[in-house]
Write a protein that binds this DNA or RNA. Structure first.
Lengths: 242, 242
DNA sequence: GTGGATGGATAGTGGCGCTATCCGCTATCT
DNA sequence: AGATAGCGGATAGCGCCACTATCCATCCAC
């Protein structure tokens, strides 16, 4: 297909596609003439991946370029690429050599050791965690770190589910791409779920009594009852809480 | 104290503090003269909160302004404010009335109903979740949604821990601020933990052999040294999935 | 009473994700 | 063959955002 159709199929404007090619996110089309290029489904797929990483995952264009370059090389060990992807997710923060900071780093090291995780202490995600803990500490909420093991339990659960999924898919699709997608979109998914669970629990605890009650005081949520019935064909995958 | 000391204590440049005041993130200092203002610990605290929300939480300045305005009003029900905070966390996405989109919305509704969560289906976090699911679907990973209940279990666990913490702190500190901090920084914390858990599990599964080996086979993050193979051997041509 | 800090206001900067425009070429329709 | 639409490639510009620089009149400390 040509660029116009690629644009139509994906909803991405043509100049934007050109921009992605320029930035190295998308491989250029195969030239059939000096100024005529062809694109195929791999481009379409890649383009959708880019948009997902961008819109849902919140990655920056430069970060996506790095991740996708890693995806291109199947030689590298998976956990490295996963790291590359995940590392680009976190916020980039300058060095703030604080007391809270070094203390937080120790806490992270202890946690990693305690759980027997096979990760380096200087892993970017570890630094992110330390940053969060340090910020908590500076805000007088160092006690929030007491929840670390609860959080880690949940994180392990999720990670297990993710890897199981990757395992299941490994033969079918590109392993690395699957892992990237799972890492990035899974994060967005979990964050949304956590926010929903927060609202639910705080409604239960502070808001309404047992019976359903919707405060009419500020019902600016409006009602969004979409008439579509269409029972989904989802199987009853019961959550096996373990 | 005056603005200079506030700056020194927090590490935030004076012009930036002025900027925050202009943007409504930080209340102005108390004027003792027409052009002389005093700041106190509440300002310092607020400033640290702003930086945490900005650097660690990744919120935008405008979003922080909204959240903090909600924090100022203790009348509003907590779960509303929590919602306000959480809603500003997610990515803003335009309307992409897709098939995947509406299908995803249904999936979300079912999930909420299935778990008995007291949240509206059109809650922003629900929309975020639907967006993530729709993106997954478009990428051919609709099956990832099978993990939803696993994810939701973990999310509930985390939310329970968070609310317990808020409960514990409620008498001591400002409730709403605590909730905001927990929501935002907790998210950063969990995401980092999840990435660490990912690396751990994928190292176990794809990297090192089963027995616990403290010594990593590749201690450095540097790429290039991928001589060690034996795992994978996935040379398969790129996704000829169609 | 002098010099440096302060408050307040306005304008400018740099990064980022696009977007607009231009040019010469090419595929396709008639 | 000629008209017309689209294309590839390159460059410049836009809009948003989080600051940052400058200016000026005032104030406080020494």
């Amino acid at each position: 297909m040509r660029i116009g159709e690629l644009s139509r199929r994906t909803g991405v404007p043509v100049p934007t596609i050109k921009y992605y090619v320029r930035e190295g996110l998308l491989p250029p089309g195969e030239l059939s003439s000096p100024n005529q290029a062809r694109y195929d489904e791999t481009h379409e797929r890649r383009l959708r991946l880019i948009r997902a990483l961008l819109d849902v995952g919140g990655l920056k264009v430069a970060a996506i370029a790095e991740v996708l370059q890693a995806v291109e090389e199947p030689d590298r060990p998976l956990h490295k690429i996963l790291g590359t992807a995940a590392d680009r997710l976190g916020p980039r923060h300058g060095e703030t050599e604080d007391e809270a900071q070094s203390e937080a780093r120790d806490t992270v090291s202890e946690l990693i050791a305690r759980r027997g995780w096979r990760v380096d202490t200087d892993y970017p995600a570890a630094a992110d965690l330390a940053h969060a803990l340090a910020a908590l500490d500076r805000l007088g909420h160092g006690a929030f770190a007491e929840l670390l093991d609860d959080y880690a339990d949940a994180a392990e659960q999720v990670a297990r589910a993710d890897l199981d999924y990757v395992d299941r898919r490994v033969a079918v699709e590109d392993l690395v791409e699957t892992a990237v997608i799972g890492t990035v979109l899974g994060e967005a998914m979990f964050n949304a779920l956590r926010r929903l669970a927060h609202v639910d629990r705080s409604a239960r605890r502070f808001g309404a009594p047992e019976h359903e009650a919707d405060e009419p005081e500020e019902a600016d949520r409006a009602e969004g009852t979409d008439g579509a019935d269409g029972s989904g064909g989802s199987d009853g995958a019961d959550g096996s809480d373990g």
